[in-house]
Each structure stands twice: as structure tokens, then as C-alpha cells.
Write a protein that binds this DNA or RNA. Sequence first.
DNA 1: TGTCCCTTATA
DNA 2: ATAAGGGAC
Length: 474
Amino acid sequence: MSGTITGMWFRKDLRLVDNTALIAMMKERDDNESVIGIFNINPSQLKKGTLNHQAFFAAVEQFSEEAEKAGLPIHFIVGKPEKAFETLKKAIPELTKIYFNRDERGYGKKRDEAMLTFFSDYKIQVNHFQDSHLHGVSEIKKDNGEAFKVFTPYYNRWKKLKKPLFQKEEFADFGVKGADFRQLFKEEQKYVSDLLAEIPIELKGEVGLQRARGYLSRFIDKKVSSYEVDRDYPAIKGTSRISRFLRTGELSIREVYHRLNDSDEGGNSSDTFLKELCWRDFYNMIYAENPEQQTLEIKEQYRGLHWNQNQGMLIAWKEGKTGFPIVDAGMRQLNQTGWMHNRLRMIVASFLTKDLLTDWRLGEAYFSQQLVDYDSASNIGGWQWAASTGTDAVPYFRIFNPTLQGKNFDSDGTFIRFYVPELANVPIAYLHEPQKMPLDIQKQVGCIIGTDYPEPIVDHQKMRSEILSLFKGQ
DNA sequence: TGTCCCTTATA
DNA sequence: ATAAGGGAC
């Protein structure tokens, strides 16, 4: 083959449509330039065996098949990015240009910065783009040039800014086939097929653009108009459920934004939902501004908090055996499905930090294993919000009462009964406080407290005053 | 995107 | 007795 080769390096942008870097590559290429698709697997970054990992690689597998069908076979390269690209360059010396959509925070940002140096050393030209968010981390600043720290003023600015367009082009529209050098990477292909063989079949259903668009359409057609109210009730499927497709990039954030806007001409039924898309940009920006936030409280004042080290409490929380029905139902939804309703994420996070006095980092770490929609910026931001240690976080004295939250947001107990089957027959009068059930009713409904379902592992009022004094003492 | 507890008003 | 409102944490 004469001419040069240009690579599209896919990462959390597993899509052939409205992919900023991919479209740029196809538009800018000239006739003697071939293109290839690349995906790097860095074994040291894998969280094998977790739902997060399995869901992501289920999407990778689906994407790889779609890309091959569309004429862009994906070349998997394995190892630390520098090593993997060194091997790639040795096997394909004509590779002189790379396109990718950059990561603007966290591990991905460090990787991208290191790789810019690497590519420059190897005389590989690089073009990279902001593709993952409606507004990148540096786009929205206060008038004095500083980053926002509070959500509402950030949102007011965000709302006014013009959003990037949805680009309808797909790879196939350009009438060019990607080159196929996969026979040079037999070992890597074996590694990938072994890795994919470990993915449970249940996780392979919730993947792909078609699926994602199904959720999006259902949400826009049927749910967004009542989203503001319905989204708070876990028993109602009132949320969009597109988060898993946004974190893999199977669904473009621009497609989401413009479909919402087009369906809501002049109305404001989607304002509350747009706010959630803004939170996604906000926390992305906050993580870029606070690169240590995965391990360090943003509020310096609270860096020395003395958290409870009791492992048993943490385990009870993880397993959904705290004796607080709404908390347990939420944790079991997470464990069984890899997803948790947003109201419940707030409740269980408040419970871990404010009722069990447990370090928010442990909760964040558990979510990072379990969530099929895990996004580090949103997850860390959410945990620091709940722990009252983040910027624009809930004030430390604004403490959720888990029993009241259950009564308010699952008043008839539909959600609790579904995920905590041992409580299925408990009368509603006792469902949110099963420990108050008289023994004869316990026997009658087949749920003995302390045997079939735990006593509350803490006294909320007691823990509330304890956490208040912990925070006040800082 | 809270809850508690007090006061005051009304029954 | 209960609702509504406000301050405190």
C-alpha cells in the first residue's frame, strides 16, 4: 500500500455517528490516505469482574461488530498506551496521523497529555476534540475569568450559550473503507476475545445505538413532560435511563440535547432534564478544576474528618442489610442491575456518610465497581455533594431521614417490596419501620425482625447528632 | 434535592 | 389536635 495511514483512536466515544474526531478525520483525509480504527486496552486500568467493567466491554464488543459491518474494523492494541502504540507503529510504519476525542479530566486527561508527547516523539501528527460534553471544561468561566464553584450561576450561563450541533454524518456516509491489519495483531485479538468471553450474557442486551435511541425516544415521547415530578419516585420509571449510553459514548450528548429541544419548541417541559445535562458538564468542569477530588475533599476544612472505621457497617450497607427499607432496596437495585435511581443514590449516600459516619471515598469506590453508568466526575461530584465536602454541596446539617425519605418517595412501598422481597407482605403501616411491627404480625407475614430482616443497624437520631458534632468540631 | 422544633393560628 | 411558617443546625 502506498500513501499514509491515519488512525481514529476510540475510547469513551463508541459511535460512528456524530463523532467529532471521526467526522473530522473523514473530512480532512486526502485520496492517498487510508484510515484505521483503534481501541487500546490497558490491562492496569481494568476492573475485571465488576459490573462497571462488564457493561463497558459489552458495549465495546457491540461497537466493534457495528464498526466492522460499517467497514471500519477495530484494531485492538493491548498494554499501556505508550507500549501499545509503539507496537502499532512498528507493525504499521505508515501510521503518521491520529485523531481522538480527548478526555479533559481524571486519568484520561493524564493519559492524553502523556500521549501527546509520545506522538510528537514518534512524529505522529495529532488532532483531538472536545466531544463528550455539551460544553468543555474551559468554555464557561465567570466574568473575571475564574471557574464557577456554584451550580446555579453556572447553569444560568450554560443555558444562554449556543450548543454544538448534531452532525448527522456517519462513517459509512463517506464511502471509504477502513484498512484491515488485524492479522498483524493475533495475540491482541486472542486477549480481547478472552476478555469478552468473561462478560455475562445478561449485560450484552443493554448495548448499542438502536437500544439507546429507543430509551431516548420513549423518554421524549412519554416521560419528559412529567419528569420534574416523576423523577423522584423510584417505583415510577420516570427517568431517561440513558446514562449508561452516555458514559460509553454510544449515544451522542448532542443528539440528546437537540432531540429534546426539537420536541419542545417554545415550551419548558424539558428544563428540569436539561439541568441534569448541565450537572454533567458542571461536574466534569469541577473535576478538571480539582484534579485531586477523588481522594481529597474539595472543602479543605473537612479534610480531617474522623470517619467511622467499622467494616461491618460498610458491608451491611453494600449488601442492602441495614434495616432501613428504602436504603436496602436501593442498594439491592444497584447490586442486581448495576443501576440505581437518582433519588436513591442521594438517600444511600446520605445514609453511608451521615448515618454510618463512613468515609464517602468508600462509597464512591463501591459505586465505581457496581455502576454500569459509572462516570468518575459525576460519581465523585455526587459523593462529595452528599458528604457535604464538595463545592456547592448539601450543607452538613441538611441530613436525610431515611425513614421519611422512604415514606415520601415510596409511600405505598411498591419499590421496597420489589427489591426487598422479605418485606413483600409487611403491611404498609410498618413497611418503612419494620422493627415496629408487633411479633404476631411478624409471624403472620413471615418476616421475623432480626432473622428474616435486620433491626436498624443504627439509631438515626443518635447518629444525626453525632455527625452534626463531628462537622461542627472541624 | 432536609429535618427538627418552636411559635402562632385555627378548630 | 393540627397546619403553616420560620429559625437553627
